[in-house]
Nucleic acid binder design. Sequence first.
DNA 1: TGATCTTCACGGTCTTAGCT
DNA 2: AGCTAAGACCGTGAAGATCA
Length: 338
Amino acid sequence: MNIRELAKALGLSTSTVSRALNGYQDVNAQTRQRVQDMANALGYRPDAGARRLVRGRADAIGIVYSAAVDNLGNPQFLEMASGLSDRLEQDHLDLLLAVAQHEGEWSMVERLFRGGRVDAVIVPNTFVQDERVEQLLEKGYPFVAYGRTSTHADYSWFDFDNERGSHLAVNHLLGLGHRRFAYVHAPLELNFASQRHVGFLAALRAAGLDCPLSYQVSGVNDRRGGLGAVARLLALEAPPTAIVVDNNLGGVGVIRGLMDAGIRVGADVSVVVHGDIPSDTLLPGMHVTTVSQATPYQSGQTMGDMLVRVLKHPEAGPYQVLRQPALIIGTSSSLCRN
DNA sequence: TGATCTTCACGGTCTTAGCT
DNA sequence: AGCTAAGACCGTGAAGATCA
């Protein structure tokens, strides 16, 4: 069923049918109702390809992420995508999730734009130096970055105050009497990891403390990495009394590793984790102290809102939202006993 | 003259007809 | 067989036509 067949069934031109279905005011109300009724009865749906061809719009937003980053294994990512999708739906925009398996992320982004498959993209997992952001700016493609980069002045982004989050974590642990810290973090090329790392070290320095390199475990952004980090830290001559982890999945791995080693988390060692612990995580009796952000669903909705504004009112941009974190105190942190 | 409807051109890709 | 030109596909929107 295409518009031509629908128009023939109604005895109208295709144009009148199109205009009736698209809310043009110069179509008689009765005609409009008749067209809508017939379209419903015959199950008419406009051909998305043809519509895209004419409008020059895809009515879709894309997120391209690398298969190397385990986003789909992170419930927070899926929750964010859900919030994003819900918000976009209000403006009749679809969300297109694409995985860059072998092809580079930027290459896929460019292919989606050139093919008219998306009107704008979300740039997830931003790097300190991010080719995707630089290329998007150069080509003039609309986007919202989920996180800043080192050059964050001239484009739209949504981010958290990561440095402040680290200050909250460190100050909380300092207040509990901890002096020997370890830091477990994602690769520092990632902007959020870089900012949290800077904040962590600055907060320690402000207290006259240091975190030697042997107490810093890099490249941890999943559960397995967290387990490995614990093995390294427990092998130290003087293991840390407090561990800060800059990402939630790594944090789950660290806590699991400590528990498996027979260490009482929150009693023998205190742990603070950036980001919320996935609700399906099996850490019985454990309420993890976290540096909490807005819920991922809310973040997704906010970015959806920003994308709509980027598309409708680009001249009023760039749109930039910096959310403040809050410390949620659980049972994984307590007074230092050493 | 305003309300309502139709005609026609447009876009990129694919198929088909016609030619060498 | 290989190439090129023409036309179809589909929905939209500007411009034009019709009618009361």
